[in-house]
């Protein structure tokens, strides 16, 4: 209770020493990051790097925003602790979800490159088909056997 006002005044003093020039530099860096993202989107990178580079630039930009525009650079222990805690939980959320996708039965992963190319393991249940030809139906019981000479029962009775 007593430490809070003293802390925030000293932080406030330090912030006033940092001039407006610093925000202009950060702004220029953010614009540069956007430009690089735009240009890189036109370059064909091998498959994982496309995503990784874009994510890296995005993280760098958000770090700049959090550190300077949101003043975390000037703030003391408690605020940094709060931010670090929330980062840990973001890592937890993403980490265990990615672990699930990485260790899951591969074909259940949507967008998996091989999903579309592979032959399905069993009969193709996704393609709608008519009922099987009566002759091809395996005999499953004596009452299912068509009588010799009797008319063939229509399928799907």
């Amino acid at each position: 209770m007593t430490t809070l006002p003293r802390n925030s005044t000293s932080e406030h003093d330090r912030m006033e020493h940092a001039g407006a020039g610093r925000y202009w530099i950060v702004w220029a860096l953010l614009l540069l990051g956007t430009l690089v993202t735009l240009l890189l989107s036109r370059v064909h990178l091998p498959s994982p790097f496309h995503l990784l580079v874009a994510l890296f630039i995005a993280c760098a930009k958000s770090a700049l925003v959090v550190l300077f525009f949101m003043h975390l650079w000037d703030h003391g222990g408690a605020n940094r602790l709060v931010f670090a805690t929330s980062l840990i939980f973001v890592v937890l959320l993403i980490g265990l979800i990615v672990l699930d996708n990485a260790s899951r039965f591969a074909l259940t992963n949507p967008g998996h490159g091989r999903t579309l190319d592979m032959e399905p393991p069993g009969p193709d249940i996704l393609t709608p088909r008519g009922p099987p030809e009566p002759a091809a139906r395996p005999p499953s019981g004596p009452e299912m056997q068509p009588e010799p000479g009797a008319p063939v029962r229509p399928p799907g009775r």
């Binding site: 265990l96 672990l99 699930d100 996708n101 899951r104 039965f105």
Partner: peptide
């Protein structure tokens, strides 16, 4: 409480590794 959410996904297609951890 934040480390347990996957116990709702045991039968939904989550990987068995994740299911065991959760």
């Amino acid at each position: 409480g934040f480390f347990t959410w996957g116990h709702h996904l045991f039968t939904s297609g989550q990987s068995t590794l994740d299911a065991g951890i959760f």
